[in-house]
Amino acid sequence: MFAAFKWEAYFEAFPTILMAFTKTIGISLLALVLALILGVIFGLMSVSRSTVLRAINRVYVEMIQNVPLLLQVFVMYAVFPLIGIKLSTFLIGVIAIGIYHGAYISEVVRSGISSIPEGQFEAAKSQGFSYIQTMSLVILPQAISIIMPPLAVQAANLIKNTSIMALVAGGELMYATNSFANSTSYYGPAYVVAAILYFILCFPLSRLALHLEQNRGRRRVKRKEYYNPAMTEFDEDMKNAVAEEGVSTWESSSRG
């Protein structure tokens, strides 16, 4: 399966694979930008006072979360041309995956904002901050450390999900890998290298998520050190803080 001649053939085709890999990176980056924009906008809508905005957000999130991504891609690929919308597979990737992960990121943003105590909103309101000031100066800077770890996880998921573009001849890493494998039947090298390439992109993000998560825990514990002069209390708090950080941080706390 891993005979040397197969590797030779693979490395001859490797420039094509690398081109496809850059396409995967391109789709990922642009889709991530789109997902972040949608995620923040819809995340803010989900915590707004307006029932209309909240309902719009709910419809978006529920639709995306309950319909397979692949189906959304197929619709853009096969149905949109029938109504006169012709998109390149690259654009379909960016838009479909961006919209898809935008919904998940909006949930991440929502739970980040909801974890900020109500008192922070009240203090800001009592000091006369506008909505935008309240969010940008008081709430989001606090929510960001809660949002970041699951956001990094989302970014890694997004990259992996670009592989479904292979099913609509997307020309990215998975597609190029598959066509090489199918046309030569040298599956071994093709899939091993593709796995390594995806891993190279996603592993740092997963590590980052873990690192951010742990950092948050440590920072909180450290601050508590000043707070409680009594050592016994400190020990108790440290245990609590660590226990709290152990489980999924951004869901555990909710607005008071």
């Binding site: 105590p117 008192g119 922070q120 009240e122 203090a123 009592s126 000091q127 006369g128 008081v138 606090q142």
Partner: peptide
């Protein structure tokens, strides 16, 4: 309102 009237909370609510 904030220009006239400031508030102190039971739970401090510092940033």
């Amino acid at each position: 309102i904030a220009k006239k009237c400031a508030m102190v909370f039971q739970s401090y609510n510092l940033y």
